[in-house]
Amino acid sequence: MTWQAVARKDFRDAVRSKWLWALSFLFVGIFSLPTILLFYLEMGTAPPQGETGTSDAFIYLMKQGTSVLVPLIAIVVAYASITQERESGSLKLLLSLPHSREDVVFGKVLGRAGVLTLPIVIGFVVAGVLILLTSLEFQPANFALFALLTVLLGLVFVGLSVGISAAASTGRRAMVAVTGIFIWFVVLWNSFANQTVNALNKYVGLSTQGEIQTTLFLKLLNPTQAYKTLIDAFLMDSALQSRIFMFSFFRRQGAAQALGDSLPVFLSDPFVVAYLLAWLFVPVAVGYRIFDSADL
């Protein structure tokens, strides 16, 4: 097993790329902008008594952005990880050395995960320091959980992208595939979920409860929605509340009634984490199998 060597080489290579530094600046900028703004507005004025917010407010504000931006950047960082080496011919150099194709795929996942995680962590550290300078009350546990989930979301999309990169024979195909998947997750997923449920309703017939649960289940299969509802769950301190919040405002009451007092196990937090992790492991496994049997 030499995937560590591959990962180290890949990371070393990427660290020298201007991309990584541009990404770090981007994350630092995005994470610190709201707090800098608040800090600026508060300058010279005493914080209003009794109305101080917490750093949770920062998380509410940020999670919409991170749920789109982190996957997008993970895709950009990883989709060409293998196709680029394949097209340039450096893959021949890599595979002339005693690395198995498994080592190459895992090494790439790890190397690119490092490339993405480093700027995310830097962004969070800077934002954390800035929050301490404002009147916001710092909630370290929630802030750390938010950071952890954001890193996990990044890992999921790195895995997905490396898997696609391993399976694709050219960079162009990999790009088409990741772009399609990104748009599907971010734009089309809810209508896909609703239409699937409508179709099921039409041909099988679902109870109101079944309808709500199926819709929710389909929504949770989307890694960006899984990420957001997991964050909401610890911010609201209730998984049930966070799931209800996944519906649009007008459907929430109905959803709350249909779900009752407790969530079925397949809609609970541990399962949501499992669905999220599946997007990390399944594409890597499938991509590896295709890559392993390919003529290079």
């Binding site: 290579d13 340039s88 011919g89 450096s90 021949k92 150099l93």
Partner: peptide, 17 residues
Amino acid sequence: RERIGVLPEGFSVYDRL
């Protein structure tokens, strides 16, 4: 591959290393 040395055809090096 642990016991051979290879100069492949049509390779490219890692530009940034």
